[in-house]
Design a protein around this nucleic acid. Structure first.
Lengths: 342, 342
DNA sequence: CCGTAATTTCAAAGCGCTTTGGGTGGCGCA
DNA sequence: TGCGCCACCCAAAGCGCTTTGAAATTACGG
């Protein structure tokens, strides 16, 4: 059933039917009701392609997921972020389009999206320190919101981010307050903006406490279980090793635990661990009592916020970029304890 | 730049330009070349909405992710499946649309997709034993491929699935061959079809070996880390407990390990563990040497296959449903060993 | 009872593409 | 020379919706 048929059965023009259905005021309430009922009865659904063509926008939001050809890894927080954003899209009547693309082709995809009118806006995932995508998109005039930030970017843009500096500062401070002085960090890849900020927060806390941070206590790499395991194992291999570590991801932390178990060290007694906890639905950090002491910020919530901001931006063209800085909560669990006496 | 403008600058009709660009034979090669060059030069991209309207299909494939209101959990294998499917969509010129929806509204979404012409086909995730979505979609005449199967469904349909029965049979057989006789299973929710099959495979192997399976050695629940931990802890709480377990997910296995560590039991010596390994990019089961003995089948590969099958089905309407049964490999790692002597 | 304004409805012109159903013009062949 | 046949190109008619501009109807004050 299409508009024409519906309008014919109703004995009205397409104009009136369209207006009745789209809530325009210039149609009598009685008529509107009649039209709505008929639409329901005959299961009329406007053709989306035709609507897009006529309206000039797609009510679709794009997420482009770059897949680096070396790593071929999909960020595990992605599923939860999408779930959060998706909730909001559904509520606001938007569709979500996902594109998996080799990272070197990402800009090309944006151009295509823009000029084909595929999407009304995009969410940018996993920004680097100086991410070329941001000026590029700003230039394209395609509305976008970044999940994270790009430190070296001067042009203003909209973003949703966790206060990573502060989160790692607090985590480190907490360990220091427990008497730890040799503290390691197992971080993400350092060209990723979030990892850079986390390192920064950690270093600031160490410096303020007058502690030095041995480079052999640092690790930066993709945040997989294996890498967490390797990093911890490597850190332990040095004669003088840390009594505590802060870890950038819950998944890496699982590897860290494995390495500690293997070395016969008890988490929270021999080595304290604080993890960053994205509050993933399938990796809850305990329920009432947390397993790990953690700095927690829900990535799902970040997804919701990003979606809301982007929709606002799309529906209010010309509105200035907005930001949202989420504070991570420091949650005390069983993985931290006083520094062991030497 | 749109078709009209492009054709005007070229001094050709829209027809010819459209045909040249879409590879129709009735245009001179020289003209085609000229058109293609001009299109590139001016960055012409056909408007997607217009194309859809004119062609009558959307070149979009839908994935609807049901979010059960109780659990609110996004299946972690989902990201990898999507990545695999997404590769193929890109290559074939299809877009991917994701919809997050409360499970009770799922059918409504399908109707909408179909009648609005939003998508040309859909992938069905996480089928239940007797999944109402399958007859529903078959009825709708919307092409679809199921990732998994629905045991109780009589109408034929296309699916891609792992041979879950055989995988768990082999895993159990392997444990039996190592001398284990008390073997537990930590499974997914049993109304999920895959979990049902896995249980079945496990039971078949036990039965064939003349072993009985104590119900206190069984667990069925959402496959999170926490649940793995709880399940293992619970299993260990009984005076006579299993010396080996098969676990339905890598993530649960991480919880299982935690419970074993906490109990002072060594994986592979005191308790043998075999896990199902979806070969997730962020949770690799070791690299050269596997951490866990596992039955492995790449969910990403399943994504690729599903996408290929669906595209084929869309482009060849009326072709009969096809199936693809993947065999999981049994990979021996360090988490299994001979049954401990009592 | 009429002029004016407000309300309600409509016909038709897009939106940008594909596709049908012709037209040219040039060539070979009788 | 004339005919038929390709090879190439075109005008125009959709696809199903929105929206403009105008017409028809009703309401109302003088």
């Amino acid at each position: 059933m299409n508009l024409k048929q519906l309008s014919e059965t109703l004995g009205l023009s397409q104009t009136t039917v369209s207006r009745a259905l789209n809530g325009y005021p210039e149609v009598a309430e009685a008529t509107r009701l009649r039209v709505q009922q008929a639409a329901r009865r005959y299961g009329y659904q406007p053709n989306i392609g035709a609507q897009r063509l006529a309206r000039g926008h797609s009510r679709t939001i794009g997420h482009v997921i770059p897949l680096s050809t070396q790593h071929e890894m999909v960020n595990p927080v992605f599923a939860d972020f999408i779930a959060g954003a998706g909730e909001r899209y559904s509520a606001a009547g938007y569709d979500m389009q996902l594109t998996i693309v080799e990272d070197r082709r990402e800009e090309e995809i944006y151009v295509e999206m823009k000029s084909q009118g595929k999407v009304d806006g995009v969410i940018v995932h996993g920004p680097l320190m100086d991410d070329p995508r941001i000026p590029f998109l700003a230039d394209l005039a395609l509305p976008f919101v970044v999940h994270g930030r790009a430190s070296d970017c001067k042009t203003p843009y909209s973003w949703v981010d966790v206060n990573n500096v502060r989160a790692f500062e607090r985590a480190t401070d907490f360990l220091i307050s427990l008497g730890h002085s040799r503290i390691g960090i197992i971080n993400g890849l350092e060209h990723m903006d979030f990892a850079h900020r986390r390192l920064h927060g950690y270093e600031a806390a160490m410096f303020r406490a007058g502690l030095t941070s041995d480079p052999t206590w640092h690790y930066a790499g993709e945040m997989t279980e294996i890498n967490g395991y390797r990093a911890m194992k490597d850190i332990l291999s040095h004669p003088v090793h840390p009594t505590a570590v802060v870890v950038s991801s819950y998944i890496s932390t699982l590897g860290v635990r494995r390495a500690l178990d293997e070395a016969g060290l008890k988490v929270g007694r021999d080595v304290s661990v604080i993890t960053f906890d994205d509050d993933l639905s399938y990796l809850r950090n305990g329920e009432d009592i947390p397993i790990y002491t953690a700095i927690r910020s829900s990535v799902r919530q970040a997804g919701r916020l990003s979606a809301d901001m982007l929709i606002h931006q799309i529906e209010n063209p010309g509105s200035p970029p907005t930001n949202h800085l989420l504070e991570a909560a420091l949650i005390v669990g069983g993985s931290t304890g006083p520094a062991p006496q030497e």
